[in-house]
Structures are given as C-alpha cells and as structure tokens.
C-alpha cells in the first residue's frame, strides 16, 4: 500500500522527465529556448553551494512568512467568524487588499523598510498568503450549525468551551485546505521580493543571475529547485492534516 503510494507519483515524475527530454530532442530546441532535464544536472552541480545557501534563504523566509500567515489568518478568521459586525466591517477591506497585485506592493515595502531584506521578503510572503486562511477559518466558524452550539450551551457550557470543543476542531479541515493554498502562495511571495528587488539572496536572486548571464539551464534548474521545495512543504502540511484532521477523510468504500 505505502509502496504503491510512493511508487506511483515517482513513476509519474520520471515519465514526465522523459517526455520533457524527448520533446526538446525531437524539436531540436536549443537550451536558450527550452532546457532539457539533461542540461539541468550540470547546472545544479556547478552551482551546488549557491543552491544550498540560497535555497535555505528562500525556504526559511517562506516558512516564517507562512507561520505569520497562520497566526494572523487564524486570528482574523476568528474575529470575523465569531462577530457578524466585524465580518461586515473587515470583509470589503480584506477583499480589496487581496485584489492588489503583490508585485506592486514589493517596491512600496522595499521603500518602507530600506535594507531590511529578510523582513521585507517575509512580509511579502505573509501578505500574499494569509487571505485564504482568514477566509476559510471565518467561514468555518460562521457556518457552524446552531444545534452544535445548543447541545453544549443547553448544559451551561461557556462560549470558550463551545469554541474549544466544537468550533475549533470543526474548522480544522477548512483550515488545512487553505494552508495548502497558502504554502504555494508564500513561495510566490518570497520569490517575488527576491526577483523584483534583488538583494543578492535567495533562489530568486540565483534566477536573476541566470537571466543576466544568459545561463538558461540555471534558470530552469532554479524553477525545478523551487518546485521540489514546494512539494516538500506541501506534503509536510498534508502530514499535519492527517494527524490533526484525518477524521474528515471519508472511509474508502
């Protein structure tokens, strides 16, 4: 069972790589048009230390941004989910903010906090990824059926007890669903900052260097490295979901 769970996706990845290689080979594309998987390995190897160093920069800044998103998003979601007035007040603001393309926010943040590269990058990763978390938590809390509240309220349970024993666990599946979206968004945020406001750090910077020095395989290699990191973080979230909200998965029939 577990073997199958690992083998199937790995086989799909390998097939994808072969297909990609064949496509480039059959069309005779030069590597500045489309690098092939066989070009990537030399690029990785040549810059292996930079990949490690910059990869780490990107990874930790993304994770910190994501953690901020979780705290702030859950807090905002709770405020909006438990108070009708707050929801009416905050929703338009939130939607409006989310509609602003974050690429336009990057230079503003960069000007606000000149030179604070770590903070700026984390801030963008956070700003781009908290929205789905806040919305899903607020929806999860506000759509709680009144009967769920009544079974505990009729026994004289406090608001906090009802929240802790019922509302919070009931919202977990929605929360994790949103977190999966937020993971990828946070990566976009980090790289946006690293590419639009280059400051010599992160995989975004490595991508930019590849572009400047016309090293096309390097650019592709950065993309693949980002994809790999995205996959790893995503599956960490999936594992956490299994632990905390595994009950929401219907038994297979």
């Amino acid at each position: 069972m577990i073997l199958k769970k690992v083998l199937v996706p790995v086989a799909a990845l390998i097939l994808f790589g072969i297909f990609w290689e064949l496509l480039v080979w059959a069309n005779g594309w030069p590597n500045y048009k489309m690098a092939s998987p066989s070009d990537l390995w030399p690029a990785f190897w040549k810059f292996r230390w930079l990949f490690l160093e910059y990869g780490w920069d990107t990874l930790w800044r993304t994770v910190v941004g994501l953690l901020l998103s979780v705290f702030f998003g859950v807090f905002l979601g709770m405020v909006m989910g438990l108070s009708r007035t707050m929801r009416d007040a905050l929703y338009p603001l939130l939607v409006g903010f989310n509609a602003i393309p974050k690429a336009t926010v990057v230079p503003i943040i960069a000007l606000l906090f000149v030179g604070q590269h770590d903070m700026n990058t984390i801030l963008i990763a956070f700003l781009i990824s908290f929205f789905p978390i806040a919305v899903s938590v607020s929806i999860g809390l506000s759509t709680l059926e009144p009967e769920y509240r009544d079974i505990l309220a009729s026994l004289g349970a406090s608001k906090f007890t009802i929240f802790w024993k019922i509302a919070l666990p009931k919202t977990l599946p929605e929360f994790f669903g949103a977190l999966k979206v937020a993971v990828t968004l946070a990566f976009i945020g980090t790289n946006l900052m690293e590419i639009v406001e280059p400051h010599g750090r992160g995989l975004g910077h490595l991508f930019d260097s590849g572009k400047i020095s016309a090293d096309y395989p390097l650019m592709f290699a950065v993309l693949i490295a980002l994809a790999l990191m995205g996959i790893v973080l995503y599956y960490i979230v999936v594992a956490l979901e299994q632990v905390f909200a595994g009950w929401a998965e219907r038994p297979q029939t």
């Binding site: 009967e147 666990p169 009931k170 929401a248």
Partner: peptide
C-alpha cells in the same frame, strides 16, 4: 438560563466527526 439537568436530541444528530 441553561441548566445541566436537560438533555437534548435534534433531527440532525450533530455528532462530532472527530
């Protein structure tokens, strides 16, 4: 106000899935 001497059951069984 609510009293703990009451038990309730509804049309929706509202069991906690977790």
């Amino acid at each position: 106000g609510p009293k703990s001497t009451v038990g309730m059951a509804f049309q929706n069984p509202v069991l906690l899935e977790w």
